[in-house]
Simulated scan of single mutants.
Amino acid sequence: MKMQNFKLKESGLNRFFGPLESKIMEILWTSPSEMTIKDVQLKLDEDKAINFNTVMTVMNRLVDKKILQKRSVARSFHYKPVITIEEFMDTQSKELTYDLIEQFGSLAVTHMVDALDKVDPELLDQLEQHILLLKRDR
């Protein structure tokens, strides 16, 4: 699932979602079970009053985007994320990396390597091992 809009100047989930979408996804990703629109609205209400219809519209748009799935239970709908936040972030970072390399080629790779001086040395060691494995498998 590739998100269509990436906001460079935002951070976290706001890079992929609007502000309310981000809050809703955070609530659903931290919930141990499915939630109704009312459940989500009550969690959002801890910050400020948000209209039920607004929450319903945003959650149904997230269903249309295939981020959430909903199912009918009695007289209400229950929502849950299609994938975990870890799977979502993994997929998005992979898609962004492939897009950067496709668009900018060696420039993107050069800038990624330049950015490595700011990462944890343990991460650098993991990257080195991964590169060695890729070279060996070729």
Rank of each mutant, 00 (worst) to 15 (best):
M1D: 08
K2G: 08
M3K: 13
M3L: 11
Q4K: 10
Q4G: 13
Q4C: 01
N5F: 00
F6T: 03
K7H: 11
K9R: 11
K9W: 11
K9D: 15
N14I: 03
R15A: 05
F16R: 01
F17W: 00
E21G: 05
M25N: 02
M25D: 02
E26T: 06
L28I: 10
L28N: 04
W29L: 06
W29D: 12
T30C: 09
S33A: 06
S33C: 01
S33D: 14
I37H: 01
D39N: 06
D39M: 05
V40Q: 06
V40C: 09
V40P: 12
L42Y: 04
L42M: 09
K43L: 06
L44G: 04
E46L: 09
D47V: 01
K48N: 14
K48A: 12
F52Q: 11
F52Y: 15
F52I: 13
N53H: 06
T54P: 10
T57A: 15
N60E: 15
L62R: 03
L62V: 05
V63M: 06
D64Y: 08
K65T: 10
K70E: 12
V73M: 09
R75V: 00
S76P: 00
F77S: 08
H78W: 02
H78R: 14
P81S: 03
P81A: 04
I83C: 07
E86H: 10
E87Y: 00
F88M: 06
F88T: 03
T91N: 14
Q92S: 07
Q92W: 00
K94E: 14
Y98S: 13
D99P: 01
L100D: 13
I101P: 03
F104M: 10
S106C: 01
L107S: 11
V109I: 14
V109Q: 04
T110P: 00
T110I: 03
T110M: 12
M112R: 02
V113E: 13
D114G: 03
A115K: 00
D117I: 13
K118Y: 04
E122P: 01
L123H: 00
L124T: 08
L124Q: 13
L124W: 02
D125E: 15
Q129S: 15
H130N: 13
H130K: 11
L132T: 02
R138V: 11
